[in-house]
């Protein structure tokens, strides 16, 4: 049996003072070479989950329970220096906004060399390595780019540089936190294609974080849907798109515009606003907005049950179509 590369189990994240649960008992696994997407609204805990894997939760927020096992080590118990060594080399991340994510006063070549220097000794081959990495992500005139400052590059080009930086040390796991939200649609497609291509080439695992189901559909093998700090549904992309079980996933999918539907009807929306994770308590977080909710839903919290292909946390799943 193949061992998962990353195994998150029962992960809870909460504020340190006046404890407020932000992420509640999240469990999932990423196999070697597998791409997993995490979908959810702002505040659903998807970014915090990713940051906790990197050991970079913001000040005042901490892991409250559970474990994050990466390649055999529990990252929640690792010391800061081990985490620092892991970041950028074994686990890397592509940042959201490429416009502000590069040091404005440092030449690009130097910034990439810094990544190598942070984890290994620089040698004669380092510059060639950086140039190869830039070529790999489709930067033209690499020698000139090495000597350029970030402001000389467009957003799309900067995101390519960011990807080159993240991939430079051949990480086993790449986290992408909405890497295309700051880009326009055509560039978005190019960047998504680039990351996908690199993933296949390197047989790298990926964690895509997004609020846009349409973006991840073609990029990942499995999807995790988060709502108010909980995983409400997880499964293969095929399963989730064709046969959503959780009413929330169902609602998300029916809010997507369809290319084939020409009826010009209004898009369906889910009534209400997302619940604050710390106010959920021992109930189904989605119950207040759910059209199938019963007294059972507010009496206790549903558990995520099912297989790797398909699991759902709901007392009244949608049922098969």
């Amino acid at each position: 049996m193949i061992k998962p590369l990353l195994s998150v189990s029962g992960l809870g994240i909460s504020t340190v003072q006046d404890p407020r649960t932000l992420v509640n008992s999240v469990s999932f696994e990423i196999m070697p070479g597998e791409a997993v997407g995490v979908v959810g609204e702002s505040g659903s805990g998807k970014t915090l989950t990713a940051l906790s894997i990197l050991g970079l939760l913001p000040r005042g927020v901490a892991v409250a329970g559970g474990s994050i096992v990466f390649n055999g080590t529990d990252l929640t118990k690792a010391d800061p220096e081990t985490m620092r060594n892991l970041r950028g080399s074994d686990i890397s991340m592509v940042y959201q906004d490429p416009m502000t994510a590069l040091n404005p006063v440092m030449k690009l070549g130097r910034q990439l060399l810094e990544v190598i220097e942070s984890h290994e000794k620089l040698d004669n081959g380092s510059v060639a390595r950086v140039e190869a990495a830039l070529r790999e992500v489709g930067i033209p005139q690499v020698e000139r780019a090495m000597e350029s400052y970030p402001h000389e590059f467009s957003g799309g080009m900067r995101q390519r540089v960011m990807i080159a930086m993240a991939l430079l040390l051949s990480p086993k796991l790449l986290i992408a936190d909405e890497p295309t939200t700051a880009l326009d649609v055509t560039i978005q497609q190019q960047i998504l294609a680039l990351v996908s291509e690199q993933r296949r080439k390197r047989d790298m695992s990926m964690l895509w974080i997004t609020h846009d189901l349409g973006v991840v559909a073609n990029l990942v093998d499995r999807l995790i849907v988060m709502y108010a700090g909980n995983i409400v549904e997880a499964g293969t992309v095929q399963e989730i798109f064709t046969n959503p079980q959780h009413p929330y996933t169902h609602g998300l999918l029916s809010s997507l515009p369809s290319r084939t539907d020409k009826s010009r009807k209004r898009l369906t929306s889910i009534p209400g606003v997302p619940q604050k994770p710390w106010l959920v308590g021992n109930t189904c977080a989605f119950a207040p907005r759910c059209f199938k909710a019963t007294s059972e839903c507010t009496a206790s919290a549903p558990k995520l049950v099912g297989s790797l292909e398909k699991s759902v946390a709901c007392f009244h799943p949608m049922g098969d179509k």
Binding site: G88, M93, L102, S118
Partner: peptide, 12 residues
Amino acid sequence: DYVKVTRILGFS
């Protein structure tokens, strides 16, 4: 963001 990125990439 660029300082956050240096932390993400494991700079000391």
